[in-house]
Design a protein around this nucleic acid. Sequence first.
DNA 1: CGTATCCTGACC
DNA 2: GGTCAGGATACG
Length: 261
Amino acid sequence: MPELPEVELASRVARRVTRGRRIIAVHVLHPSQRRALPTRAARSLEGEQVVRVRRRAKYQVLELSSGRSLVVHFRLSGDWVPLEPKQVMPAHARVVMAFDDGTSLVLSDPRALSAVVLIPVGIDPLPALGPEATSARFDARHLAKATAKRRLPIKTFLLDQRLVAGVGNIYASEGLWFARVDPRRDARSLARDECQRVVAGIKRVMQKALRAPGRYYEEGVAHLRFNVYDREGKGCRRCRTGIRRVVQGARSTYFCPSCQR
DNA sequence: CGTATCCTGACC
DNA sequence: GGTCAGGATACG
């Protein structure tokens, strides 16, 4: 379940593996991936060099020597696996990029929902995105202005990448817990100081995770690090009240009904 | 504005 | 063997 900090870590892996390397071949192993990256497009990548790897929100952009871009989004279960020669292919390998030094960068994705799209020269590779959740541009003023005309719960708002980019389902719940704001609140109803707290809460949880990228959400111990996510019925770490789970926009939201208002 | 869709592993 | 999980998008 890669959220932004995990994507940040993955982009560093991609940077390390691709630095100065030329692509020998790209193998697209899963039919759903082949729809987005047909054999012809994959073949056209042969001989390209990865000039730069940048991350924007949960997108990774691999800038190629031809000026084209390969945009990668892990969605729910994607990850990069660097592969040395003779190492065994991961069970859920979907796309394999083989480089001229014998190493490969493998997109491993059990649920096969990741997106790998080749963007032609001269086209903005990314959709319109709001300010990075961790940036100074995401502030109380922006939040208040963006929510002014829209009627939806603040939790749902935080997941809209056009308004603020990089917040996922887990961190939206966690950030609102820090902010002591009820996720069901209509975004327009938030006072300025509540907007300020929401911004601070989101940044707090994301920066905490970024300091130990990839470690915050970790199999087995992840739930121990969260304050509300996946803790339905367990005691709130501030006030011991039972954590509640509700469904908003077909996804789970967790919160403390007592100290989030 | 809400909701179905993609996909597969994990769980009852 | 049915349900759930979840990011982004494509619909109604």
